Amino acid sequence: MVTAAAAGVLAGARSLTAIAEWISDAPVWASMALGFAVDPFAKTVVTLPHPATVMRLLTRLVGDVLDAAVSASLRARAVGRTTAKARWRAVAVDGKQLRGSRAAGGKAVWLLAAMDHTGTALGQQQIEAKSNETRAFVSLLHDLDLDNTVITADAAHTQHANGRWLRDRGAHYIAAVKGNHPGLLE
């Protein structure tokens, strides 16, 4: 059901109701590809969850736990994907507002994510707002192997504590400097 919900979002569904409706209206071939069972008697009818079941599941999912599971799966699939062993691995960290999303209180959902330069999402976590990206930087990268990794991030993450933490973990970083460090910028 989670994969079907993701497919519904990719198809343009922007609410829980729209996701549940997309699953109900999906073509038989798509439902079968998403793993829903074929009715053994009718053979052309796919057994789908009731829209209320889909909505109950999606409202009860813990986003950070789902993110961790999906990220771990993507990292496992990426191992050995490249034929040549690179000397350095490049990882970008950035935060973005999810367009069309709303959390409790009607505020937009913000995520801080780490992605390697092959396009694999290594991790992401929801943050309260753009201003909280800096505090989430270390916790986002904490479980990643950072040996021989070059981290890039925007100027908000150019903090002494972040640099020390990255060095202690065997990582390297490219620090963007703007007005948040006027002496260093000068």
Rank of each mutant, 00 (worst) to 15 (best):
A92R: 02
T53C: 12
I151W: 04
A176K: 09
T44Y: 11
I174R: 04
E133K: 04
R60P: 03
H160A: 15
R60H: 14
D147K: 07
V91R: 04
H50S: 06
A13N: 03
A171L: 00
A13C: 04
V79W: 13
A42V: 14
N162S: 03
V79A: 08
T53E: 11
F137R: 01
R81K: 14
A30C: 11
L34S: 07
G183M: 11
A52D: 12
M115P: 05
L112E: 00
T149L: 00
V9Y: 07
R81W: 13
G95H: 03
V65H: 09
P182A: 06
E128W: 07
R164F: 05
S131P: 05
G179E: 10
V38K: 00
G119D: 00
A176M: 11
V9A: 13
D147L: 07
H160D: 15
A90K: 10
H160R: 14
A129F: 11
D145W: 06
A68K: 03
E21K: 10
R164I: 14
V9N: 09
V45N: 13
G123T: 05
Q97E: 12
R75E: 07
A78P: 05
A92W: 02
G105N: 01
A69R: 09
G35A: 05
S73R: 07
G163W: 02
A121T: 08
G170F: 01
L10T: 04
W29F: 10
K96Y: 07
R169F: 04
R56T: 11
A92K: 02
L98R: 05
L111P: 06
